[in-house]
């Protein structure tokens, strides 16, 4: 039986928690609790003692258990010596406010995840900031590692409302120009639109020496396409309509989505960007684990 805390990794459970700070706390606690019972046990008690293997490290220090699970080399018993500045970049486009099953919207899922990450980072004394954007950057909060920063971030996140059109590429370029130090940029977006300019913007982060985790958040319905029969699809950003036989188009849609994600996956891999495809039905631990792995690699 999973522990009670782990229940909070499930979106359908966490949505019942109204306060964002509690959501963040519960998600992280659930995540930590899950790590105890998992092969990633080391992370839960001494995750600060792992870092990514680099040539020159003693091979005897490689944690083979972690390798077996993650396919990556990690060195055990290593104390983090530096702090990592993190940016949470939230997409405010109208499409992020979408939910098909009336559970968590993509945006709610994203801010829950962002809150949890902020919680984690503050607790590790990592400075963390927040940027929100639609067609341009709307709000921003400079990264800090104080305890009060968590409250500020959560407060700002709770106030954000997705609406209207978006221009992810332009916004990311803006965000990139705002950042002075090498940072970890965590982008939460459904990436609607042409991938080419967005990928170009992501590449800019890398050119500037930043690490990037791209959380591609989609609604569960956007991934599973549960529609049947004749459906009139409405675009909540452009008010476009399309009436089509959902059964007939399902295969093609899923294929297109797969291709879309595959393109991001391939491009991100080439640019050493962590691409994390998510949907609102998925537990949060996957996203958190991606962060931790990235955090360790920076160590």
């Amino acid at each position: 039986m999973p522990k009670a805390a782990e229940q909070y990794l499930k979106p359908e459970v966490i949505r019942q928690v109204a306060r964002l700070d509690l959501r963040a706390k519960f998600i992280v606690e659930g995540f930590i609790s899950g790590l105890h019972a998992s092969p990633f046990h080391g992370f839960s008690v001494e995750f600060s003692e792992h870092r990514k293997y680099t040539p020159g490290d003693d091979i005897a220090d490689i944690d083979w258990g972690v390798y077996a699970k993650t396919d990556r080399y990690y060195i055990k018993k290593f104390q983090a010596e530096t702090n990592l500045t993190g940016y949470l970049a939230m997409d405010l486009s109208g499409s992020m406010g979408y939910t098909y099953r009336q559970e968590l919207t993509k945006f709610e899922y994203s801010i829950s995840l962002a809150a949890a990450l902020a919680y984690l980072m503050i607790h590790q004394q990592d400075p963390v900031g927040l940027v929100s954007f639609d067609t341009a950057v709307r709000q921003s909060l400079a990264p800090k590692s104080k305890r009060s920063q968590l409250g500020n971030i959560l407060s700002l996140l709770a106030r954000l409302t997705p609406s209207g059109a978006t221009d992810v590429a332009k916004s990311l370029h803006q965000v990139a120009s705002m950042m002075r130090h090498r940072s970890l940029v965590m982008v939460f977006s459904d990436l609607s639109g042409d991938p080419a300019p967005i990928l170009k913007a992501l590449h800019r982060f890398r050119y500037s020496g930043h690490d990037v985790i791209l959380f591609h958040v989609l609604d569960e319905a956007e991934v599973t396409f549960p529609f049947e029969g004749m459906v009139e699809f409405l675009d909540n950003e452009s008010s476009d309509k399309l009436t089509i036989d959902a059964d007939g188009v399902k295969a093609e849609y899923l294929e297109a989505l797969d291709e879309f994600r595959a393109r991001y996956r391939k491009e991100c891999l080439g640019a050493r960007i962590d691409y994390v495809p998510l949907h609102t039905g998925m537990p949060f631990d996957k996203a958190l684990m991606s962060y931790l792995l990235n955090r360790q690699s920076q160590g």
Partner: peptide, 25 residues
């Protein structure tokens, strides 16, 4: 069937493929 209206943000993804699919269907 009278189509059910459904809001769907990834409509652009459908539109991309639907031309061929609609013909086949």
């Amino acid at each position: 069937q009278s189509p059910n209206p459904v809001v769907f943000p990834a409509l652009w993804l459908i539109r991309e493929r639907s031309q061929k699919a609609r013909k086949q269907i």
